[in-house]
Write a protein that binds this DNA or RNA. Structure first.
Lengths: 112, 112
DNA sequence: CAATAATACTATGCAATGCTAGGTATTATG
DNA sequence: CATAATACCTAGCATTGCATAGTATTATTG
């Protein structure tokens, strides 16, 4: 893959990561950051900590996610769990619809 | 649509516009800027001049597009036509493949 | 022929993002 | 105690889409 398309990949990821993270959180119900990295990487969407934590913080600040530290005495480092708020769920619905629309438009353009 | 999802839409367009423009140029063979705006707008992807011209210039500078002024005596303002270079065609192939991959990953995530 | 409208393209500066690189804190292991 | 593993966080950079404003050329109108 050329440097040009590498840069393009960086750009088209903008927003797409939000969509995928919200989608995964809805599927799982409750997720913490490190787990998200592993699951997304396994799904073919590798990302680094420096990418996901600022992103989770932003979405929490925006009211799309609710964050709670694990209260149960879990072994190991404490974990911060994220879940969709009602607003986050609504936003995800809009995003999914828009993403589908983008896919349809691209197909239409390809077919001329 | 909320201000939040509006901003998200702006972000996810990054890169996606490149893909759509290259796709449309491949379909049409030869296109000029103003025509691109009309066709994309009609396809459901409205954009402004301030968006598309810098973008066409960048892709031309990157060697993805070749630009030629119309030599035939066309009525009205002279038009600059854009067409895919061989490198642009190769880049578009990679982008399309990556976009399909993104769509598949998103579907997988949604289904859990 | 001058004035206006329409078409095509260009330049500048902003806000928002993903990434790199580095750092911190807690627990488990030998 | 020292090391590794886990989990989280932050600063700064490059890139982008967009709004805004402007230039240049041609057609139309009076």
């Amino acid at each position: 893959m050329s440097a040009l398309t590498d840069n393009w990949k960086t750009q088209i990821r903008k927003g797409y990561l939000d969509l995928c993270i919200l989608t995964l959180i809805r599927s799982r119900g409750r997720v913490y950051g490190f787990d998200l990295i592993e699951q997304l990487t396994r799904a073919g969407l590798p990302l680094k900590e420096g990418t996901i934590y600022p992103l989770l913080n932003r979405m929490t600040a925006d009211g799309l996610l609710g964050a709670t530290w694990d209260t149960e005495n879990v072994k190991g480092h404490p974990r911060k769990f994220y879940a969709l708020t009602r607003e986050g769920s609504r936003a995800l619905d809009e995003m999914s619809e828009e993403f589908d629309r983008m896919v349809r438009i691209h197909q239409k353009l390809a077919k001329g």
